[in-house]
Design a protein around this nucleic acid. Structure first.
Length: 321
DNA sequence: TCCAGGGGGCGTCAGGGCAT
DNA sequence: ATGCCCTGACGCCCCCTGGA
């Protein structure tokens, strides 16, 4: 009787705990999570469970059962899970190395959550990021040499592609509303005079004007609430040598193009890393929430099984009498 | 009201993993 | 080998809360 129930619980745990989760419970769970997992009384009953990848896991005290009664308070009916390597006393140096390897090889939150979701359909999957609405930081745009992306001091992005396309994007605004695209058809060979382009601004705003003057490109705001951008291409056309002045009136000299390129690359890198860190934190929160849900589910499951066991035991005792 | 402490979010850096 | 992505770690800032 006890054996069957504990095996059920073991299999339940085996099904629901991936090795990545163990790594997290070992290293980086939130205090609330670790408290729920590790709050356990010492029990001599240790079950070794083999995970799907072959890793051995010791599950201690799945049911803290004294000899007389199986039923215990729910507080102590949690499982303590530790890898065999950690529990093994001998060869601590090798254990430490192995532990470090396990920790350092931990997959990303997306992978972990996707694996969890493959286990249980209730867990939402984290889809691969769509780059369509990330024009300023899309890798394809960044790796293609002709595209230049700049961020203004107000947070707006200016993307200039070799196709003579200028795109203004405001952060936090969906692409259809936030992006303004202008195709510069006359700039392959810059006109000696100024070519004025107008793009349809957002409703309610005055149109912005783009001046192209003898190889120079100036983007000026027509309204006071939009900061003034100044771009220029000293040699020809709208190639990547276009730079953006930090403020109105501070045009860049060609001699500083190398430093500008370095600065631009750094800005792009920082911007992408900023986004990545934000996304990583979001996924981490989602992952922790997922683990908390899983703890709740497993606790409920445990409770139900114990009640079931109690009922069966009552029936058995009645028949024995 | 002031202030210390904690929590949460953010930006940046560093380093490992991975694809090319 | 290289570049990109992901994430831990660190410092900073802001907000909230409880005590003096």
């Amino acid at each position: 009787m006890d054996t069957s129930v504990s095996s059920q619980l073991d299999s339940s745990l085996k099904d629901s705990m991936t090795d990545e989760e163990e790594n997290y419970s070992d290293a980086s769970l939130s205090p609330a999570d670790s408290a729920q997992v590790s709050e356990v009384a010492e029990s001599p009953a240790v079950t070794v469970v083999q995970l799907s990848d072959g890793q051995m896991v010791q599950v201690q005290g799945v049911i803290q059962a004294p000899q007389t009664s199986v039923i215990q308070s729910p507080q102590v009916q949690t499982a303590q899970i530790a890898t065999v390597a950690e529990l093994d006393d001998g060869d601590s140096v090798a254990d430490t190395q192995k532990r470090r390897e396990i920790l350092s090889r931990r997959p990303s939150y997306r992978k972990i959550l996707n694996e969890l979701s493959s286990d249980s359909p209730a867990v939402p999957r984290i889809e691969e990021e769509k780059t369509e609405d990330e024009v300023p930081v899309s890798s394809s745009a960044l790796t293609s040499v002709p595209t230049s992306i700049y961020q203004t001091s107000s947070g707006q992005y200016i993307a200039i592609a070799q196709g003579r396309t200028i795109q203004l994007t405001s952060p936090g605004v969906e692409a259809p509303q936030g992006a303004q695209t202008v195709t510069v058809s006359s700039s392959a060979t810059p006109q000696p005079g100024a070519t004025i382009l107008q793009c349809a601004a957002q409703s309610g705003n005055s149109p912005q004007q783009f001046y192209i003057q003898g190889g120079q490109v100036l983007i000026q705001a027509a309204t006071g609430d939009i900061p003034a951008y100044q771009l220029r291409s000293p040699n020809s056309g709208l190639a990547q040598s276009i730079v953006m002045a930090a403020s109105q009136g501070s045009m860049q000299s060609p001699s500083s193009q190398h430093a500008e390129e370095i600065t631009r690359k750094r800005e792009v890198r920082l911007m992408k890393n900023r986004e990545a860190a934000r996304e990583c934190r979001r996924k981490k929160k989602e992952y922790v929430k997922c683990l908390e849900n899983r703890v709740a589910v497993l606790e409920n499951q445990n409770k139900t099984l114990i009640e079931e066991l109690k009922a069966l035991k009552d029936i058995y005792c009645h028949k024995a009498e």
